[in-house]
Amino acid sequence: MTTAAAATDRAATAPLVPMLVKQTWYGLLALWRIPAFTVSGLVLPVMFFAFFGLPNVGRTFQGINAGAYMLASFGAYAVGSMMVFNFGIGVAGDRAGKLDLLFRATPLPPLVYMASKLLVAALFALLSLLLLFGFGAAVGGIHMAASQWVQIIARLILGSVTFAALGFAIGYSVSSHAAPGVANLIYLPLSFASGLFVPLQSMPQFIQEIAPYLPTYHYGQLAWGAAGAAAEPLATSLAWLAGYTALFLTLAARGYYAEEQRKFG
């Protein structure tokens, strides 16, 4: 049976690369058309930097220009929130809207579907960073070596896997109505308490003590480190992020399999 099917295999399935390209392109387009997402993902980080970062440009903090430090902070905030919100709200929305059912019944492989989602998020994160850093360089006059800019961007995008996992954990655990609230309730305090908005040194003592246990703190270290102001070795940051990624993926997998059992068992 299988051999007979294999014999008539001539273009039995569509090529995967064009499929991935189209899926990613239309994913970008769909996201672009949701103002709530573009505003919070692209405009807010620039605005936050204008409020909190610009006044500090020229001062020295942790041995570097405080403006560059805060640009790195808001870069981490922007990419992390892009992941948490895109996947947290996106997955919950897809579940509620029964989009999972639509795509499941097509020949689109689940891996291509997932890869396109990650690509869309990474490309939006890149766009968000380019806007933010462009603004910092043009308006704030912040200078760094090209290699430093590139390193910050690369570290933030690769390290954002942790927050994509957090997004999946939220998206598979709560309803689409609850997802935006839950995502905010988790991500905003994490960002504040890790010094992404205002440097930790100006936070209450107990927060300074909690911060080194938070994923956002170690994620921030990736960016601060590339800008020349690391508070811990890179390996330490990566180890913490890997641990949190494992935790979030476990939570996501639990929700995913429960859903799988119910809807597609």
Binding site: L29, A30, R33, D94, G97, L99, L101, L102, A105
Partner: peptide
């Protein structure tokens, strides 16, 4: 496949 229950992306 045309599934009555399934959703469809709204903004495309």
């Amino acid at each position: 496949v045309m599934l009555q229950e399934s959703g469809v992306p709204q903004v495309l």
